[in-house]
Simulated scan of single mutants.
Amino acid sequence: MDLTGYPTDFVADLGFPGAARRFLERRARHWPRLFLNGVPLDDTALGGWQLPEEPDTSESSILGFARDAAMEQHWEDEGYALDDTGEGPFALFYSRYGRPLRAGAITGVAGVPEQVAESVESIGLMLSGFFVVSLLTPDDPATDPFSESVLRDLRESFAE
């Protein structure tokens, strides 16, 4: 199968495991019969779910999401593509790095009040550890409402 889908990439702070859990909970409310990594996720499994502890590595771990068994099969046949309902499987790839990350200047600040954005625009960034995260949606979130809703849920999971 050819790789399909549209990646949206981020650097996330060490709060990513909590945000990933909140993201999973949001998606489970949208898809009550959610499959996570090919396995149905029931309320019992969701209640105790935590992001698996991963070593500091450059290899990505993956969380694969599908609405139900039919979408899981759709993924096998079509990859990360929209189905007849306008929804599709998606994945969250992540790698944890326990070493510092520094950047010379922050640009393109969004999602905060204008005064906050102006105060951090063009200043340096220092993190003691971080995650590299890639959300792979069926289509471009800028043009596809379903993919946009998945991206919005991920972003809002960091605000809770």
Results as ranks from 00 to 15, higher is better:
D139R: 13
P138K: 07
V120W: 04
W75Q: 05
A142C: 11
A91W: 04
D84E: 15
E121V: 06
L101K: 06
V120D: 06
F131A: 09
V112W: 05
I106Y: 05
V132W: 07
L151C: 02
F90H: 12
G98W: 00
P113F: 06
R152C: 05
Y80K: 08
G129V: 02
A103R: 07
M71L: 05
S147A: 11
G88D: 03
L101G: 10
S134R: 15
P89T: 02
H74D: 03
L136M: 12
G124P: 09
D139L: 11
P141H: 06
F93L: 15
Y94K: 05
S95E: 06
S147F: 05
G79I: 00
S119M: 12
F146K: 02
F146D: 05
M71F: 03
E114Y: 12
V116S: 13
S149W: 01
F131M: 06
V120F: 10
L125H: 06
G111R: 00
G111N: 04
A103I: 02
P141A: 08
G88E: 04
Y97G: 08
I123E: 13
D77M: 08
Y80A: 10
D144F: 05
A103V: 06
S128H: 09
V109N: 05
F93D: 06
G129C: 10
R67H: 11
E78N: 14
P145V: 06
T137W: 07
L154D: 02
L101Y: 10
